[in-house]
Structure formats: C-alpha cells, structure tokens
Nucleic acid binder design. Structure first.
Ligand code: FES
Ligand code: FES
Lengths: 132, 132
DNA sequence: ACAAATGATACAAATGTGGTATCATTAAGC
DNA sequence: GCTTAATGATACCACATTTGTATCATTTGT
C-alpha cells in the first residue's frame, strides 16, 4: 500500500521547484531537466495543478508556471486530493452488500478514526516545510 | 484508497463465522451459502488462511476448517498482512531515484509516524471484537 | 513569420484486483 | 472397496488503475 502515488510525488517536487523560483516563471522544460520526470507525464501533472488552481500558467514563448499561493497555504493533502481523489479509507459504504454485517460497522468506526488522524496530519503538513 | 481490500474483508467475515462455530468443523459450502462470497474465490482465501496458520483444514467428507487460535489472539493487521502484504506506506525507499531529495525525507518521517499509528491501531484491534 | 511555450486529448504498456476453472487428493460411511 | 463430499494445487482470465507516451492545435514574445 502506498500512501502517496507517483503523480502526487512528482507534483510535490514540481511545486517545490516552482515555489523556489518565486515570481519567476518556470517553464516545463526546466522542470524536466532538473527533476528528471518524464516530459509528457510532467506536462499532464502541471495541467492538473493549473486546473485545480495551484498553479497559474502562461502560454507562448517565455511562458511557464508560477505559484498562485504561498507554500505555507498548500498542504500535502491538497495535492493528494487532486491526484488520488478524496481521502476515503472506508470504501465499504459503496458495496452495499457488505453492510448488513455489524462487525464491519465496528471496524468502520475504527477506520474512520484512523482516517481522521491521517487527514489531520497530512492536512497540517505544508509544502513550505519541504522547501526552507 | 482502500485500507482493507476485498479478500481481507472476505477473510475477516469467514474467520468470524468459523470462530462462532467454535470446535465444530465448518465446510466451505456452508460459508458460501451464508456469506455470499463467490465460491472459488473463497476457497482460495481459505487456503491462504490455512497456509498462514490461522485455520486448520480437514480434508475428505465431513471436512472443513476450524480456528487454530482464539479470536482475541488474531488482529485485523494479522489478516491484512496475509492478503495485502507487509504494511508499508512509504514505498519511496524502493525508488532510489527519488531519494536524493531532502524534502521527501522530511515527508518520509511524517509518513513513518502515520504508519506506526495505523499499525498500532489495527494490530490491537482483535477479531474477537467483531464477534461477541 | 518564427520559435517557444502550453492546451487538449487519445493511446498504450504494466501492474494489481477480483474472480473462474480444472483436476488431483483425501477421508467418512455404507 | 466404492462412492461421495470435502480440500489442495495451480493455471487462467477480465477488468480497472497506474504510469506513462504521442500528437496536434493554440497562444505569445521577438
Ligand atoms: S458500513 Fe459497511 S458494514 Fe457497516
Ligand atoms: S527516503 Fe526517499 S527521498 Fe528520502
């Protein structure tokens, strides 16, 4: 089980790099060179970050990406949610046929508590901590 | 993200049922009927539980499965480990190329703490709690 | 006009999950 | 011993997800 997937990891690294560049526009090719992320894959990731409002993009020559928020306003969880969907360790609710069983519900409460802990820990871990 | 996969869930349900039968031998067909788990899939799961020492199997007519341990000696984590492998939220160690980066290491520490918490919570949650 | 960048989108390989099918082996009970 | 009801072992398969790749259109600074 992975907690953080590859695209989230790439996204974090890209965000860190772009954040260090401050107001300077960072073009994707620079990220590819420095971070060794496969180019088309990175492009897709950057587009996602743009659509989700974490980056602002500039098209055309001299274009690229800049941060829209301060790094201390972005949490690991914010990035995870973009690439891995809403945090939901308890998928049991979906499979209706599993639910008549009480035992799963006791377990469900346990898992809910675990989930709350994880969400709170990752939600308070800001991108800024990864830069300094 | 799921914390518990389908086979682990099926395994937990099967174990609960078998545990309730105490020393009585429970044949797979009975489990199929009562728990509505696809037959060949359940068979595979029961074989895993047998190989990992949580169940003892009796072959031949009148055969089936019985528990080898008291339900308060088996944790959710024990079952998860059989079907989902060792708990390892931090897969980063494997991908060597990610590691020169300090930021991941700080994050890694955070994830390690999260993992310890999850392992401790699930390791102390015993099968017995699901039965009563 | 040209070059350098992003936008959009479709495709593809590798892996993981959930499930199926088959045949051999064992043991109880007549 | 024969039948029957059970497990053991193993190989296969369909689908979804992950991790990418490829292509072409569009925008913009010089
Ligand atoms: S919520 Fe699924 S069993 Fe209770
Ligand atoms: S352990 Fe992978 S970056 Fe530190």
């Amino acid at each position: 089980m992975k907690l953080i997937t590859r695209d989230t990891d790439y996204a974090l690294r890209a965000l860190c790099f772009i954040a260090k560049n401050k107001d300077k526009v960072t073009p994707a090719p620079e990220l590819v060179a420095k971070l060794k992320i496969p180019r088309p894959f990175l492009r897709k990731i950057l587009q996602s970050l743009d659509k989700n409002g974490l980056l602002k993009s500039y098209k055309g020559k001299g274009g690229g990406f800049v941060m829209t928020l301060k790094p201390n306003k972005i949490s690991i969880l914010d990035v995870m949610r973009i690439f891995q969907g809403a945090f939901n360790l308890n998928e049991c609710l979906l499979n209706k046929h599993l639910c008549p069983d009480i035992r799963v519900c006791i377990l469900k409460k346990k898992i809910d508590r675990i989930e709350k802990y994880v969400v709170s820990e990752l939600g308070s871990f800001k991108l800024a901590y990864l830069i300094e």
